[in-house]
Computed example of a mutant assay.
Amino acid sequence: MLRSNRYSLNNDVIRNLKLHKKELEGPLPSDAGKFEEDFEGAACAGDFYEYFAFVCGSLDFVLANKQMPARQRKALYKSFFELYPQYAQLKNALTDYPELSREIGRHERVRRLLVSILNKK
């Protein structure tokens, strides 16, 4: 059965999005603080938290069938490293922080899925 909404989602996609939402819930990865300590002055765990909250909030808009603000939609088209270019030089260092790296990857996958949903509108 198709669910009529602004994002043209069917029940399978909705179930998939809800699974992603559950997967994204939780605190910052335990190695985010270590990353911040190791790159003092160059990294801020708060930026990771802000990005994670941004992706989860965008997911909530889609699941609630609510119009996402234009500024938020526009930002959703950018990856973490595009939104926070000050971390671009630290991208390769993330391999030493597996939990943080995995969490960024999870949020990136959901962000790309949301972008594909927005593009099908």
Rank of each mutant, 00 (worst) to 15 (best):
F80Q: 03
L24R: 08
S8K: 13
K121G: 14
L100F: 04
F61P: 01
A42F: 11
P29Y: 04
K22W: 05
E108K: 07
Y51S: 03
D38L: 00
A88Q: 13
N119P: 00
L24F: 05
S8P: 00
L118T: 03
E36Y: 02
P98T: 11
M1A: 11
F80D: 01
E108F: 09
S4L: 09
Y77K: 05
Y87M: 10
F52I: 07
H107W: 06
K66W: 04
L2I: 14
S30Y: 07
E25Y: 07
G46M: 10
A70S: 08
L17A: 08
A75S: 14
Y84C: 07
Q89L: 13
R6H: 07
G105H: 03
E40G: 07
Y7I: 11
V110A: 10
G33T: 06
S101R: 13
G46D: 12
A88F: 09
E40Y: 15
A43I: 10
C44F: 14
M1R: 02
P29F: 08
G57W: 10
P27V: 04
D31E: 08
G46F: 09
S4H: 09
A93K: 13
D47K: 14
I14D: 10
E82V: 15
C44M: 10
I14G: 05
E103F: 05
N11D: 11
K18A: 00
